[in-house]
């Protein structure tokens, strides 16, 4: 059995009377891309800070490779926090080298890695420029560089694409996939569900500090049922409060079956009502819809 690279067990973190994380448990397996989801203020960043020993848990345990994280493990970690910046008066190359060396790399090795990264992201000519002279997008590339300069075994990114333009977002996605292909486990916090669907294999979602979704991407989607049906018809779709609910208007609509109603029953009903069907396709709900649904459900509760 493969030992998880991250293991969070019954983690609770309170600040005075406020509970930020409530009995949270999840595991991340080596080599996977894992998404950590939740609305703003749901406790994601706090959980990561406890995991990285920046904050202390009120109760429960957090382990990386079976141990509580400490700075001696810095060589295997890459971390891009939500509240991130750079030493604005420092030069690009020396900043990357400084963090590479803090993560255990030798001086020469850190220089080679830093130059190689700068070439990769098109900033080789900015190596000796002060960071404050870079554009916002260029600074974000340096922030990412600080996190991945050591080719980390575990990469934790808190909203990595926040503020990135589509081109740089695409570049980042490609880099994460490449790092993962080269053996890095990637954990990322995001509000961009399409990014999760594109690269993540498993996820956890929390709401008000509590776990509300957890598992493989397909597994999570399946748990919401393959019960949406995309329809393209001629004419009008008859209403049926007992069988389905209609989303959208016109010839192309989406319908969601009522509880305990199968797609076959709906198809039969439509045929019986002489609806000319051009397309009848069962669809999996998008993660975005699941996210919204779960968030709203919990708010209603």
């Amino acid at each position: 059995m493969i030992e998880p690279i991250i293991k969070v067990t019954n983690l609770t973190k309170t600040f005075g009377s406020k509970t930020a994380v409530n009995d949270l448990s999840f595991e991340v397996n080596p080599g996977e891309i894992f998404a950590f989801l939740g609305a703003n203020g749901s406790g994601k960043t706090t959980s990561i800070r406890v995991l990285l020993n920046i904050l202390q848990a009120t109760s429960g345990t957090t382990h990386i490779n079976g141990k509580v994280y400490d700075d001696a493990m810095a060589s295997m970690l890459g971390y891009l926090p939500e509240e991130r910046g750079l030493y604005l008066n420092a030069r690009v190359l020396e900043t990357l080298m400084y963090f590479a060396q803090l993560k255990g790399m030798e001086s020469q090795g850190s220089k080679i890695a830093a130059i190689s990264y700068l070439e990769k992201v098109g900033l080789a000519d900015k190596a000796n420029v002060e960071i404050k002279q870079l554009s916002s997008g260029q600074q974000q590339k340096i922030q990412l560089g600080v996190a991945i300069i050591n080719s980390p075994e575990l990469l934790i990114l808190d909203e990595p694409t926040k503020g990135l333009d589509p081109v740089n977002r695409e570049l980042l996605m490609e880099m994460l996939l490449e790092l993962n292909k080269n053996g890095s486990t990637v954990v990322f916090i995001t509000h961009q569900m399409e990014e999760v669907e594109r690269i993540a294999s498993r996820l956890v979602m929390i709401k008000n500090g509590k776990r509300v979704l957890y598992g493989g991407l397909n597994e999570v989607k399946a748990s919401f049922g393959n019960n949406m049906i995309q329809l393209t018809i001629e004419g009008n779709l008859p209403m049926s409060d007992s069988l389905y609910q209609i989303h959208g208007i016109g010839n192309k609509v989406e319908i969601s079956p009522k509880p305990n109603i199968t797609s076959d029953q709906i198809l039969k009903y439509l045929v019986d009502n002489n609806v000319r069907i051009l397309k009848f396709e069962k669809t999996v709900p998008s993660l975005n819809k699941i996210f919204i649904k779960v968030t709203e459900e919990n708010e209603e509760q």
Binding site: D71, Y79, L80, P81, L102
Partner: peptide, 10 residues
């Protein structure tokens, strides 16, 4: 400069 968190993990 919001560097504390990164520094404190190293």
């Amino acid at each position: 400069n919001r560097m504390m968190e990164i520094v404190l993990t190293t």
